[in-house]
Amino acid sequence: MTGINVGKGALLGLSLALMAVAVYMVSVYVPTEQMMGIVQRIFYFHVPSAWVGFLAFFVVFICSILYLVKRDSKWDVIANCSAELGVLFTTLVLITGPIWARPVWGVWWTWEPRLTTALILWLIYVAYMLVRSYASDKQQGARFAAVVGIIGFIDVPLVFLATTWWRTQHPGALVFQSGGLAPSMLATLMVSLAAFTSLYWLLLIERVGLKNSENEVEILKESLE
């Protein structure tokens, strides 16, 4: 137990330190982008949120396969918690995206492949959580959710490809067109990415611990009845 706690403490410290550095870099160190102005700084929260969303759904995919093969509820708990975090971070992407898009592109939303994929992804994993809650018992919910977790993740590249071919000339994010990022911007992005990734693992460990406690309480309650 203490080993886990020490690990968790270290991860907490790392996340806090990285976040402090990231906030400093985003608001003080990195220069303001010339064409887009101050609003471009949301980029350093938007992109890492998207990355963590994908990472979370990838973890759901792997744990779903492991659950169906091994039938150990440990994997189901991780998949469940990771899906919740994935939906949370994808929601952040869908909120920060329009805030950034409005002053830069003049619209809140465009049906550009990356945006469309993020939205469909969000819908699939909201359905994933609904399926779990609609199942008649826990084990069935776990099996059903695992199937959705596998199909949903395989669907992501298909949605991305289909939307890319559908919109052959996409508006394009200016950041990626103008020959890559300035070194200071890239450094800031990297620190932000590290901070978000570390935060994801910390939240996942905390959430899994909480879920396990919830399950224990439920088992205790059942044994009392």
């Binding site: 469909i120 819908l123 699939i124 909201v126 359905a127 609904l130 399926v131 609609y134 199942a135 008649s136 069935q140 059903f144 959705v148 199909i151 949903g152 669907d155 298909l158 949605v159 490809l161 289909a162």
Partner: peptide, 20 residues
Amino acid sequence: VNTRAREMVLPILFLPVVVP
């Protein structure tokens, strides 16, 4: 068909996945 909500579950799963 095996869930409690039955008819409600199919469209919310089926439609986003068949988007491509």
